[in-house]
């Protein structure tokens, strides 16, 4: 899956229609653009790209568009001996890509391939993740030590999907998240850092998975999150910043997790997101007039699904940004 941006741009004019078939074609064609310079420049996102494209296709109701065997081959080709996954074959293992690998394998029901053809079964993947937990409960992205609430969320997300949560110290992880809470009720990337909607998603998402949403000041956080909607209808990530289509997911799902999604104007949000789509060549951009890319395509569609937009499959707002039908099956019984 290439992450080359374009070819088109978000149209930037009001459009009440979702051009679903164009988006399917757009995603399908991403991998045929290997001869573009940007294909190489985005190699560091290849495995994430498969997750974004695959999940977007599921939301669009075309789950079988990508060839399953080839997808499994590619995912397994990114695995390192330590059990973790890199962005592409030959890249070092990192939390961000390991999470995408798990999400993809769960989505296409292929976790057992880890045992058959991978470098050890799911326990091996789980131990790679568990080894990245620090003494204070936070998580590193890889052996070089960067710590960020994104990695903590990723760890709990992947481990819960693999049903291996007991490999890590969940109460300590929860305590770390609490230390990232600010007076405005929202969360930062590390203790002391400014609140940021992307980080709110990771912190609330982790608390949701840990079953500790009771620790959240829901009215205060809900107020902060709802203030992210600006006149254009879109969400920004912090006060006084521009709106961006991907925040329809980061902010929207955070609101959904604390039962406050109705605190914003869903119709205006959907209208903003639809203005970010290219009605001709497919795909979504971060904002109207900009180049489309698969990351914003996925999170725009996930945001629209959250708003129960007509014709889209339901997304799971709580357990993982994946089709609800799949997480329900995976996490049941």
């Amino acid at each position: 899956m290439a992450l080359v941006s374009g070819p088109g741009r978000g149209e930037g004019i009001p459009d009440s229609e979702l051009h679903s078939s164009k988006h399917v074609t757009y995603i399908k064609n991403l991998d045929t653009r290997k001869d573009e310079l940007e294909y190489w420049l985005t190699e560091h996102l290849r495995l994430n790209g498969v997750y974004w494209g695959l999940t977007a296709l599921h939301i669009l109701g075309c789950p079988d568009t990508l060839p399953r065997d080839q997808t499994i081959d590619f995912v397994l080709s990114c695995q390192s001996d330590n059990g973790g996954f890199g962005a592409a074959p030959g890249h070092d293992a990192h939390m961000l890509y390991t999470v995408s690998a798990v999400q993809i394998l769960i989505t296409i029901d292929a976790v057992d391939e880890l045992e058959k053809r991978g470098r050890g079964g799911k326990e091996k993947v789980g131990s790679f993740i568990a080894n990245l937990q620090n003494a204070d409960g936070s998580f590193m992205g890889d052996q070089w030590g960067e710590t960020d609430t994104r990695f903590l969320y990723g760890a709990l997300n992947a481990l819960s999907l693999l049903r291996l949560m007991d490999l890590v110290d969940v109460p300590k992880a929860v305590a770390h998240i609490q230390s990232c809470e600010n007076l405005d009720g929202a969360y930062g990337i590390r203790p002391g850092a400014e609140s940021h909607a992307g980080q709110v998603f990771t912190c609330i998402g982790a608390l949701a998975i840990a079953g500790r949403l009771d620790l959240v000041n829901k009215d205060r956080l809900g107020a902060w999150l709802s203030e992210r909607q600006i006149e254009s209808g879109g969400f920004n990530g912090r006060p006084e910043k521009l709106a961006d289509a991907c925040y329809s997911w980061w902010v929207g799902s955070s609101l959904a997790m604390i039962d406050r999604l109705h605190w914003i104007d869903g119709e205006k949000l959907a209208a903003f997101v639809l203005q970010c789509q290219d009605p001709d060549a497919g795909g979504f951009a971060d904002r109207p007039g900009n180049m489309v890319d698969v990351y914003h395509t996925h999170f725009s569609l996930a945001g629209l699904s959250l708003l129960k937009f007509n014709g889209l499959e339901e997304i799971d707002a709580i357990n993982s940004c994946m089709p609800k039908a799949i997480t329900a099956k995976c996490l049941a019984g």
Binding site: A223, S226, E227, Q229, R260, H262, D265, K268
Partner: peptide, 10 residues
């Protein structure tokens, strides 16, 4: 603040 009308109603 019509965008957040439901919040105010709650």
């Amino acid at each position: 603040d019509p965008l957040r009308r439901e919040r105010w109603l709650d």
